[in-house]
Design a protein around this nucleic acid. Structure first.
Lengths: 341, 341
DNA sequence: GTAATAGTGTCTTTCAGACAGTATGAC
DNA sequence: GTCATACTGTCTGAAAGACACTATTAC
């Protein structure tokens, strides 16, 4: 790094990682190789195509019944990649030829311990999910992969046309039945009882629908075996969790950091920006105010050009103001959570 | 789970994990055992003691110079623990006899790939950090462990008495020198140049101090070899990262979820609550308004009792209203980031 | 009494949200 | 002209923030 370190009594600690030798307390163990673990990296690569939020999947042949799609995923091989980031990027770019901008690990609850049932019976597997954002412009994608609408997997998350009727029609009757079985029963590893979990996850009983609780909903639906209720496509359970975490994280992030712009082309109209935000969050009762919000906060700047053939008056083109990264702490598209509706 | 699954064409996908067999693309590999990995779990257990934010550490003997403390940490041994959560909890409770309430994985940037220099030269190590919250009431702690003030490690993060003078006095001159070496140079794996990174991390050049960017600051100080500048205690570089991530995450979380109460006894005065929040966040220009905020949002309710000997008028005791977990989406102590000061 | 903390009322500024209305293009 | 989108101005109510003031204890 830098060899010009000045003399200072305070510099007790140099922090180049090479100097450090770990001594975890529980380390000295005889046959420690038995406790080594397979690490599997999975990514939910999200983009916007024609105002639809889409995710990159390896599609199974549609001929077979009850087939599930797969997210890009691979085993982490330390010999090949220096970091996890590098590894997952190369998987995405290698498998699907898609270039990834924003990349974030999802693991707040994720790195879930799994035991594969396959050949190597004793091996254990740790799964690490990722959220990646891409611009879905390139048509250079192998035939094996497709962009699938996220709401094909999670139709109840699609609030763009208002509250999805399937909630009351399909989900709630069966979820209520599941609650009735044992309303105050505490399921393992959950601090809330069934009735409360349902109320929180789906915003009933006086609660609000929280668009960020995607994972809570998936977990609940899993326990009721309802994950694919009304869904056009299906994912394996653990990839399902990764996508749910990714969508929840993206919804939270879009409010606090300028990540929408990772999904948009360099130049865009304010209406395109709004459509993209709404594709992810749903139409959060903002109309013309949206414009004032994003312009007022200085997130974007006009390029001076306009786009015609919009169906109406030509729209000014805007670009992201990179300077905001240096200015405000939390420069997101500050759209509040939805009302009761 | 439930055997009463009703017939439904939509139930293509049952989601019990046992049914699922992974087939990652990059899986079939000859000597795959060489790619198995040691997983190390580390926890920053944070509590409040006498209005000080403290972290649980295994203290090195103070006799030796340049010694570093250690966070509770252990290798993950899948044979012993079914989940990562269970494993890290048992480490904390076993090592230090401290009961942990809130527990969250930190890995958004963390699970950092490390190569230990020790005996087993070929083994690779994946480190997973955690944020744990505890109530520091129990005095039943082994002599090996102590509660150390977080700001002993990160003095520049302590804004309780206003802006720390050490920023201008000690840090900025040397950080500026580091920037001057190569102001617009892009360091590997960073989208910003040095000047920008400094501006963002420390809120200079028109930026604001963002109390959540603890990790950014640590990374910058590490590169300048200034991590222990003015510090009373030191941690190893990777434990340092874990603590930095933990503090940053806690600061973010405390605004959005009712996690402060995990640090407080079941009953408390509003002033104690405020002191606890300020211990973590710094005094964020709120005085009497703090009371109105927390009472107004229904986060707490009066128990009816009072505490005397406060040094003044007796204070009403409050308790956390558990019902808010079911009500609002983001019920945190909504304190805005600090102003310029 | 003083000192120190506990707690209330009110004013101002800011801003999200709602809504009315105008502008400019394609057809 | 109509239709659809683009864009602007104004009103309102909620809430953050600032500040003045009263209340109750220990000493």
């Amino acid at each position: 790094m830098h060899d010009d370190a000045r003399n200072s009594s305070a510099e007790v600690l140099t922090s180049s990682a090479e100097d450090w030798r770990p001594e975890p307390s529980d380390f000295a163990e005889p046959d420690s190789t038995r406790d080594q673990i397979d690490v599997e990296l999975t990514a939910a690569v999200i983009a916007i195509r024609q105002d639809q939020p889409v995710v990159l999947v390896k599609a199974r042949p549609t001929t077979s019944e009850s087939a599930t799609d797969e997210l890009p995923s691979a085993r982490f091989r330390p010999a090949l990649h220096a970091t996890l980031d590098e590894a997952i990027r190369s998987v995405i770019e290698g498998e699907a030829g898609t270039e990834v901008g924003f990349l974030e690990q999802l693991s707040s609850d994720c790195p879930r311990f799994l035991m594969p049932m396959g050949s190597s019976g004793s091996a254990r597997r740790l799964s690490i999910g990722h959220l990646a954002l891409a611009r879905a412009d390139g048509a250079t994608m192998p035939a094996s992969h497709v962009w699938a609408s996220i709401y094909d997997y999670f139709p109840w998350e699609d609030w763009r046309s208002g509250r999805p009727p399937m909630l009351e029609q399909d989900l709630f009757p069966r979820l209520s039945a599941w609650v009735s079985e044992n309303p105050t029963g505490m399921d393992p590893h959950h601090p809330l009882c069934r009735r409360e979990r349902l109320a929180v996850a789906f915003g009933i009983d006086g609660g609000r629908w929280d668009d960020e609780r995607v994972l809570d909903r998936i977990e609940l639906l899993s326990e009721c075996r309802l994950v694919s209720m009304g869904a056009l496509r299906a994912l394996s359970p653990d990839h399902c969790r990764v996508l749910a975490m990714a969508l929840g994280r993206l919804r939270a992030k879009i409010r606090n950091r300028p990540v929408v712009f990772e999904l948009l082309p360099p130049e865009f109209t304010l209406f395109e920006l709004q459509k993209s935000v709404e594709a992810i969050l749903g139409p959060h009762l903002h109309k013309q105010n949206f414009r004032r919000l994003v312009e007022g906060t200085g997130l974007v700047e006009a390029t001076g050009e306009v786009r015609t053939h919009t169906g109406g008056r030509p729209a000014k083109l805007f670009r992201f103001r990179r300077e905001v990264l240096l200015e405000r702490p939390a420069p997101g598209v500050r759209i509040r959570p939805a009302r009761t509706s």
